[in-house]
């Protein structure tokens, strides 16, 4: 009969090297928690500070009046409408082109040197500073094609700027759809397009929505490129078509921030920022709803 080891000789407690590893493991969760809290803390502080400064200026009148020389009479109407017009047009231009490009690259394009070059360059374009796009927009859309400093010219410029991000995230989303789903569909006699339409696209929508939101948020907050295009810093009119001149919320905010101190324009700037944040939040919420809707059953 084999002698069983006396119970006291076996210890299942962590000791020595294992104890050290466990200690580090337990400690790490607080480090990660700290990183998260830091990000949330900074955001919370910024929001608190902005709301404290600008919350009092926020009212229906603030949204519906034009800018003014007098801080308390000024509103964001022109900037808000301009931003809605420009961002709306940008969305309409960017999303179909971005998704179409991603689908072509991932599902239809042959794998050769040329398409490899295209892939690589799209990734590179995502890193180009926005002011460069502004210069391009000014030279090409405003001057060469003679669109002038219009909503259309701005939207085209912003589309160029955010298309790389849109395409890259959409490509990533398309790649997330497992190949077995494509095989299954093709083996049932579906064409490539039917496979993309019924299986790849629905599977990729959540990822595409995230990408679209990232891209559009960047466009909505863009200032430099649009100053280049010639967005109005002071506008007292409503745009009524894409061929109108325009102002923008970020430019309006910028104008208020550089205004002389002590006249109450700081509060206007803060209130403008709140309006801007609410807009981005609404976009994000829309994206979240789309993601939820298309999540795999």
């Amino acid at each position: 009969m084999a002698a069983a080891a006396p119970a006291s000789l076996v210890s299942l407690r962590a000791s020595g090297q294992l104890a050290r590893r466990q200690f580090i493991s337990r400690l790490s969760r607080y480090v990660f928690l700290g990183a998260t809290l830091l990000a949330i803390g900074v955001l919370a502080f910024l929001v608190f500070d902005i709301v404290k400064q600008g919350g009092g200026r926020l009212s229906w009148d603030f949204l519906t009046t034009y800018p003014s020389r007098f801080a308390e009479r000024a509103g964001v109407r022109a900037g808000l409408l301009g931003t809605i017009w420009v961002v709306g047009t940008t969305i309409v231009l960017t999303i179909p082109v971005g998704i179409g490009t991603a689908i072509w690259i991932e599902e239809f394009a042959p794998r050769n040197r040329l398409t490899q070059l295209v892939r690589l360059n799209i990734a590179n374009l995502a890193g180009v500073p926005s002011i460069i796009y502004g210069i391009l927009g000014l030279a090409f859309f405003v001057r060469f094609t003679e669109l002038g400093s219009t909503i259309l010219a701005a939207a085209l410029t912003l589309s160029l700027m955010i298309l790389p991000i849109m395409i890259i995230t959409a490509q990533e989303a398309v790649r997330q759809v497992p190949p077995s789903i494509r095989d299954g569909s093709l083996a049932l006699g579906a064409t490539r397009l039917q496979t993309v339409w019924h299986h790849v696209l629905p599977g990729a929508v959540p990822g595409m929505a995230t990408g679209a939101i990232l891209a559009i948020s960047r466009a909505a907050g863009e200032t430099a490129a649009l100053i280049m295009i010639g967005a109005a810093a002071f506008a007292a009119f409503d745009p009524t078509s894409i061929n109108d001149k325009f102002s923008l919320l970020p430019i309006q905010i910028y104008g208020w921030i550089i205004a002389p101190r002590g006249q109450g324009f700081e509060a206007n700037a803060a209130a403008g920022i709140i309006v801007m944040m609410m807009g981005i939040l609404t976009l994000n919420l829309t994206a979240a709803i789309i993601r939820e809707r298309f999540r795999r059953p």
């Binding site: 077995s180 789903i181 299954g184 569909s185 629905p202 795999r296 059953p297």
Partner: peptide, 10 residues
């Protein structure tokens, strides 16, 4: 065709 790993559509 039926594949190695079941691949029903979602």
């Amino acid at each position: 065709m039926v594949f190695q790993k079941p691949n029903p559509f979602p």
